[in-house]
Design a protein around this nucleic acid. Sequence first.
DNA 1: ACCTGAACACCGTTCAAGT
DNA 2: ACCTGAACACCGTTCAAGT
Lengths: 223, 223
Amino acid sequence: MTGRVRAPRRVDALSRERVVAASIELLDTAGEDGLTVRALTAHLSTGRGAIYHHVVGKDDLLTAATDAVIGDLVATAGDGDPRETLRSIAVGIFDTIDAHPWVGGQLTRHPQPAVFRLWNSIGASLSELGVAGTDLADAGSALVSYVLGASAQYAAGARQAVDPVAREKYLQQLATQWPGSGCDGGPGQAAELLTDHDDRDQFLAGVDIFLAGVLARLRVKMD
Amino acid sequence: MTGRVRAPRRVDALSRERVVAASIELLDTAGEDGLTVRALTAHLSTGRGAIYHHVVGKDDLLTAATDAVIGDLVATAGDGDPRETLRSIAVGIFDTIDAHPWVGGQLTRHPQPAVFRLWNSIGASLSELGVAGTDLADAGSALVSYVLGASAQYAAGARQAVDPVAREKYLQQLATQWPGSGCDGGPGQAAELLTDHDDRDQFLAGVDIFLAGVLARLRVKMD
DNA sequence: ACCTGAACACCGTTCAAGT
DNA sequence: ACCTGAACACCGTTCAAGT
């Protein structure tokens, strides 16, 4: 009698990977405040103290989860146009933080290994553009700050307080489509996509302004 | 530091202003985690529930404290060169967040009235420069995002730089991985990137890059 | 070695009871 | 009306006790 064919109960032992994966799941579904030791251990069907055998504490958990999500995103600078590479790096960060808003607060609050890789990729592309020395440090810092900060703020919904027109539109859409949306996801999703789309364009416009500034200063220096 | 001892006498009745002022004091001295209802009410020599007669809750407290600190910072709109006005607004935000690091997280996490005023000031100066329409929205959003995000990240980084272990590790990685390192003493140059004084210069350099980009695009559009 | 879960020291908020 | 402080429902972390 075999019984218990596919019970996901205690088949695997706990591991750091499983704990981190469950944390990401919880963060995505329940938000930053939804990640509690109680909720996490309940999700893992284990005791409250079990995770402390695989993780130092909650800080370690947040850092590991962030690193797992941002992971290989900033893999390597392509050998194409450095401008395009920079834009795709920026958009990659934006989309990741948009999908996992808690990553935004995490990356901007405390420096992490993931931020290093971002620095290196951005620095390499700027270097390819011909930026060097102090200018490279200045431009790299500014671009990293913008990409991280703007993505985090867009994800946090800063746009609603910043742009009165978009705020009005957003609230109107929210008022008309959010409460009465009985149909399965259609209008609500459309509204989300619209606002996301605008945010993304505006974010990228900021990247382009920045790159234009870098190139303008580069040209001045060459004269 | 005079050494004068201030006795916590209960001369005045509690008020929203006194509660907010005490919160700011606590946030500045004990950090973001140091603001607890227990510590606050102890500081005010009152019962735990007393503050709830003057404040909705902790969120309201944080918002009010942030607004009080950022307060009239943006109010001083100079009628001089808009570029200089923009730079002074940016530096004002940077210095404020540097002095009150908790303001950084607060402004970037949740939209606030203070952010709206910042957007208006920056928008007005950009408008004076001749930026209009979609370009104004794009440039304004980008600058607000950069000023807020970069200031918050520099403040967070400065706090972490106090930890000697993390700082050393950070410097080492920076020195070995930063592209084009190899000039006079890589580590030394990397170390300079983390000092507070250079932070301000680097932050302002970022503002100038953005402004150069805005002006460059403006020139292109005029052709 | 790994896991359990009660216990501990916190936290924000509420509310009957006082003034 | 304003304040008090015990009580409530949480939280992260620890640790003797089990397997």
